[in-house]
């Protein structure tokens, strides 16, 4: 097994979940997933082992998503492309959480966030990168990362508030 195959086997599950959180549907996520590995394969010679491969991989995926056209990786407005996808999401909700609908709303609200806010939110909460790492990854100031993160949370709260109010 080559180094690249080793990387694919090790980081594919993480990259899959990351792409799913960014794109919201399995089809765009699969496109982003494969494009990321294709880009990695092309630039594998530029990788320096002193640098974290995980950061390098997710930086490439994040920039692919950020620099893509508006509808690329975001072609479907469906929160769940299939019923199986929705059931899988519901099964992933912790058992102690009784309010499944709240998580469905959270997922829907995340998919409705603007791309740049969604990207920062997913990198921060789902990949546990620091704000400085996110700034370096996206080549933006750290203050911008903080701003986008706060804006994303405000938008989520507003959406969840409205959902609660309608309910």
């Amino acid at each position: 097994m080559t180094d690249f195959e080793h990387y694919v086997a090790e980081y594919s599950p993480q990259l899959t979940r990351f792409c799913m959180k960014l794109c919201g549907n399995i089809h765009d996520a699969e496109d982003l997933f494969q494009d990321t590995w294709a880009r990695e394969f092309d630039r594998i010679d530029q990788y320096r082992p002193s640098y974290s491969f995980e950061s390098w991989l997710f930086a490439i995926c994040a920039n692919l998503f950020k620099n893509s056209k508006k509808l690329k990786y975001n072609s479907s407005k469906a929160v769940f492309a299939t019923q199986e996808e929705k059931e899988r999401f519901i099964r992933s909700i912790p058992a102690e959480e009784k309010d499944v609908d709240a998580y469905l709303d959270l997922h829907t609200a995340m998919m409705e966030l603007p791309k740049k806010h969604r990207l920062v939110l997913v990198l921060y909460y789902f990949r546990s990168f620091t704000q400085q790492e996110i700034a370096d990854m996206l080549d933006i100031p750290e203050g911008t990362v903080k701003s986008r993160l706060n804006t994303a949370k405000k938008l989520l709260k507003r959406r969840l508030y409205d959902e609660e109010d309608q309910r």
């Binding site: 594919s12 599950p13 979940r17 899988r88 992933s92 909700i93 912790p94 998580y103 909460y125 789902f126």
Partner: peptide
């Protein structure tokens, strides 16, 4: 909710 959502997501074994 975000934390729980992330923990649940990290337990997913679904991959492409």
């Amino acid at each position: 909710m975000l934390t729980n959502y992330c923990e649940a997501d990290s337990q997913q074994t679904f991959t492409f």
